[in-house]
Structure formats: C-alpha cells, structure tokens
Write a protein that binds this DNA or RNA. Structure first.
Lengths: 352, 352
DNA sequence: CCGGCTTGTGTAAACGTTTTCCACATCATA
DNA sequence: TATGATGTGGAAAACGTTTACACAAGCCGG
C-alpha cells in the first residue's frame, strides 16, 4: 500500500536494513531469486519496491567487469545527413537492447577523424561489451580490429576480404539486383544501364554481380559504357544519368545501387522532359522514405532495417553469451517493391 | 620508444608500481596535473602511455557518483522513420560530447510505451547525468518531471505551459513563418492558406502566430477555412491540400508547418496538373533533405539542427557545471531558403 | 633556530555492487 | 544420537577509481 518513497538515495544497504536481511540476500533476490526462500524473497521484493530501489549500474558494472552497454558508431558526413538507414537501425537496436536491459552508446564520428579511433575509444576504454558495425566495406579494418582484439560484435553486411569468420547479417544485394534486372528484362528491356557504388563498399560488388548475372543469363551482352560508378549521392546520380541520356544510343532502363542516386536520375529525366516508367525505367535500392514520394514513386528494393536491428541485437546477445560464430551468419533477401518508375520499353522512341 | 604493450588489463595499480609511485599520484597526474611535481608527472605520463593505460570508466563513475553520460530519448514511430531531424541533432550532440569526454546514451522509445517511463529509467536508474529533450510539447510532462526531480537538462524547443524557467534552445517559428508569409504577401498573394501541426506541439502555435501576424499586418483578413491542422505526415498534407484545391475558391499559396506535409501538397498539385511555384505557391518548414530534391525544389525554412546539437551540449555542460538557468535560454531565427516552389500569383487562373 | 606555511607524496577510506566462502539450522538417515 | 546432506543467509573480499587526511621535507620570516 505504501506509495513510492523519496527514492533519492536508496541503496542496497538501506533495503537490507529495512527488510531485516543482509545486503547479500538482497542482491541474491535480485540476481538469483531461486537461491532464496520464498518468504524472504517476497519480503525483500516488497521493501525494494516500496523504497523504489534501483541497483546502481556503476556498482554493478564495476563489480561484474562489464559495461552492460553496446556501442554503435555513426559516421556523420559533412553536409546533410540524408541517411535514414541509421535511424531505422537505431530504432531496431534500441528496442531489442532495452528489452535485454542493455544500454546503447552512440558515438558519432566526424568526417575528418579516423573512424577506427572511435572504435578504439569505446573498446579499449572498456565502455562497451560489444559493438554493432554497420556499412561494412570490402576490406573492413574495423572488423579486422575487433576480431584481433576478440571483442564481441555483429556486422550489418559482410566484408568479403576478411577470411576469419564473424557474425553478420547481410541483405543479399546480388539476389536483389538479380531480381530487379530480371524484372526489367521481363518487361522487355535490353538496354539496361547500371549506376553502381564505390568499390570500396562490399555491397557494391554484390549488386553489380546480380545485374551481370541476370543480363548474362538472358543473353544480353554487357556494355562497359553502361556500367558506371557513382558516389551514392543524388548529385552523382543526376550527373551520370545526364551522360547516359546524352549518348547517341541511350539505355531504356537504369538500375541504381541506391535510391538517392535513383532520385538524381529521376531529376535528370524530368529536366529532359522524359517520364520515368515510360521513356526510361528506373529502379533504385534501399527504399528510403523519399522513394515513395518521388515523382513518379520509385520502384526499389526494400531493406527491413528496423527488423535487422532487432535481429542484430539477438545475435550480439548470443555472441556475448558465448555462442559460436557458426550459427550467427544470416543473409536476407530484399524485397522488390514495384511503384511507378518502371514499365515496358517504348520501341519507337528516339531522342538525340 | 617502447611500443604499445598488450594493454589487456593494465590498471592504475600497475602503472603506479611501474612508475614507482602510489596509485594516488597516478590518479592525480591524470586529474589534477598541477598538484604533482613536473618530474614525477612526466614519469607517470610516460609509463601510462607505454602501458597503454586507460582509466576504467566504471571505477571512476562509481567513485565520483556520476554517469559521465548524457541521455537522449528518440521516439520511434511505427512506420517509416522519415525524420532526419534526430540524425542531425545526434551528429551535433555526438561531436560536442566526445570533445567533452562524455558518452551519449540513446534510448529509443517504441510507439506504444509511454515516453516518461524511458526518462525515468535513465534518470532514476542513474544512467545519465543530464538529458537533452527534443520536440517539446506545449505542456511537456518530460520537462515537468525533470524539473521536479532537479535533473540537469536542456530542451530543444520551449514548452510554453511550464512556468518554471529551464534551459532551452528554440528556433523561432513565429518569426520564421512571419517571414515566410511576408514573402508570399510581397509576391502579391492574398489568398494564403495554412496547414498547421497538432496543437499539442508547442511550435505549432508559434508558427501559426507568425502567419496570423503577417496577414493581419498586411490587412489581409484571416479565413477560418484556410487554417487547417495536419498531423505532420506527407499523407495529411496531400489530403488537406486536396480539400483546399477542390473548394470553389482555392488559395493561391499554401504555407505548411513542416516539409513533409508540403511534399504532400506538391503531390496533390501534380495530380491536378498544377505547378507549384506557378499556379500555387508552397512553402514548407524544416528543410529536410528531400526538400531540395522535390519537384519543384521546396522553398522552406532552414533549421540548423547540427549546430543546435553542438550548442545544446555547451549549454548542458554549463548546467552540469552549476551555471544558472538565466543565461541558458536562446532563440534562433530560421533562415528562409528560396527554391522553386514559390512565385507570384497568376491572376487569370481559375480551376473548378 | 624555530613555528608555521607550502609543496609533494603516500595511506586508506570510500563509492555500491556481486559473489565466494562459511556458518548455522534443519532434516533425513543410519 | 551421531552424521552427512541440504537449504538459507551472513561476513567479507573484491572490482578500479578519487580524494580527505596525514606526513615529511623545504622554505620563509621572525
């Protein structure tokens, strides 16, 4: 009945005194309830609740030698931070972690500073028990570092050039773009260009590979002047699309390694009076929020980032619990969501 | 010369022994360098560096009774998380905090759960020394709670219904929309509609007030059927714009309380074959990344969230240092950035 | 030449937990 | 009734810091 007390500074000692037991017992009630008799357990729980007792995390952390915290480093680029990926991931991570009673430590890495230093600060400063590594690169020095130090972590995305096994959850860009390209081929397209991502990123090669495979299977020869590399920005999509469209023989479809570049392509089309989904088909990748408000709404590959975040937490928890890496490698297939930016090619069209 | 040692478990005792001093001296060297003689200081620093010593934050936190951590609670709505606001803010906070040697604890608050519980967990669980409160509401129970408990915090945005003073940094929505409305008036518009935000949010009233003031000063009577309230989503902008445009006497300009709704308005216009910036002018608020890629690019009010984040850290630091609230209340004026979605009204136009 | 002040360092006591012993009942069993 | 086995709870030792206090040495002015 007693309502909450001014829980200003109630520690385990206070609870113990109030309940007429030793602090060890209080601790046991909270951490190993089965090792204490039901009567005392009930009594302790009651007084703890009455006093509003919350174990001080720092005492706990110090004693247990753990941080009870998981880290995430977000690179924060110079300009606008258009990247909702991290926010979605964050939501998933946060939900999963709070259920597990762990804290989430977020460090942002300013553009200039080297990223690895941020990781070092968290790891060597014992601020986290484990980490989530996002946006993996082809050879990812962060992963190499964490493996070398034996720090538990999970990666969102693979890093193909790292031999040693580690836990990851990846979205299958190869399969995704294989499906996207097949969609275009089935619509009748044969002149399909590809605007890719910097080779540094691991996913860049996977996506390109999906595109190649689909075309080769369909007997469509690859054209080297239709395989471009952007920097993932809207601007670069716009620029590269301009080049493609001005060429004597422009493609009838353009596949983009991310939505931002696809939006740039849409802009380039609009400027030339071309309609996406009619004269030229465009497919993106990521399904960022803007995609559905684009004109026309962008056909793209959806990646369930929030769900990925939740799953990553489960995997990390397993890893922290000592589970072997073997069972902790997953690849999900992104879903092709059809909107308005793709359609059958229009045979008669010709533009300079 | 000696290169880094296997810094696996080097604690202050180890450094002390190696340097031939007591642990107190090592601690002093690190925390109060001036209280130790230059010679020993140099010797200790050298050995600490050689051993790769990093003070264990948990020991420190326990002893000092502080968490050395600042908290931020991000509400994570159900659907897509289109809100780059938090990411920008996060970047600013992260940069500022890491300079100050503080950690940033991010908690995400799932839609169902009550937000206050998240704050309570952080505060009463002694997980943070201070908090940043974003997206303040007209009467903000989070602020009331923090004030009541005497927890240091800074708010991004004001909460008008709270009497007691507290530190905040706000963007002046009144002034912002006053300027936006004046811009439209100067272009010659007289039929200006307003799509606002839920009254629950504090900024909603400020923005509306700016709109009203500008119109009243210009002698333009307010029309109640032109003052609408959306829910900040693209969808609601689209829907409300539809209503405005179908009316017998549609407005020539629409002011929106955020960019997302403005994008919805643009979509509604496109569907009706109307061009934003020609037949109807549209101005948004926030300058989200999508704004510059919209068709046409959206004229809007820019809010420097990252800079705000940095400043908020400074303010919070001052507050943690015991500075009085008085000097910690700032209001910045957002900047009107002209893009393509506004223009002079076209007198002869009429549509059903 | 001595009391007091300054300067530099060491000793030891916290900070609030968890956990490893141990001690003590209680109880069934021989 | 002695003897383990079992269950329960207490005492105390960590975990790695910071800091109040004590102490020794050196310096100063009287």
């Amino acid at each position: 009945m007693g309502h909450a007390v001014s829980s200003q500074n109630v520690d385990i000692r206070r609870v113990a005194a109030e309940a007429g037991v030793s602090i060890a017992t209080v601790s046991r009630v909270l951490n190993h309830p089965e090792r204490v008799s039901p009567e005392t357990r009930a009594r302790v729980l009651e007084t703890a609740a009455r006093l509003g007792y919350r174990p001080n995390p720092n005492g706990k952390r110090l004693r247990k030698g753990r941080a009870e915290t998981v880290g995430l480093v977000i690179p924060s680029p110079q300009g606008r931070f258009a990247d909702s990926f991290f926010l979605e991931l964050l939501a998933g991570l946060g939900e999963g972690l709070s259920e597990a009673g762990l804290d989430l430590l977020v460090a942002t890495c300013p553009p200039g500073s080297d990223e690895l230093a941020c990781y070092r600060r968290l790891v060597e400063g014992k601020r986290v028990d484990g980490l989530v590594v996002a946006r993996t690169r082809r050879y990812d020095e962060r992963i190499a570092y964490l493996l070398e130090r034996g720090v538990p972590f999970v990666a969102h995305g693979r890093s193909d050039l790292i031999a040693e096994p580690y836990p990851y959850l990846d979205l299958d860009g190869r399969e995704g773009f294989y499906r996207a390209a097949r969609r275009l081929l089935q619509l009748g397209h044969r002149a399909i260009a590809y605007i890719g991502a910097p080779r540094e990123f691991n996913f860049a090669l996977h996506r390109l590979e999906g595109y190649r495979q689909a075309l080769l299977e369909a007997g469509v020869p690859l054209r080297v002047d239709w395989i471009l590399e952007g920097d993932l920005s809207e601007e670069s999509g716009y620029r590269l699309a301009g080049g493609l469209l001005e060429a004597p023989e422009p493609p009838t479809a353009i596949l983009c390694a991310n939505d931002l570049m696809a939006l740039g392509v849409l802009r380039a089309l609009r400027e030339r009076g071309l309609r996406a989904g009619r004269e030229v088909s465009v497919i993106g990748y990521d399904d960022i929020p803007q995609a559905q408000y684009a004109d026309p709404p962008l056909t793209t590959l959806h990646q369930p980032f929030r769900e990925a975040g939740r799953r990553l937490v489960e995997m990390l928890l397993a890893r922290l619990g000592g589970a072997p890496v073997a069972g902790l490698q997953e690849v999900w297939v992104p879903e092709l969501v059809l909107r308005g930016s793709d359609g059958p090619p229009q045979g008669e069209r010709r533009f300079p």
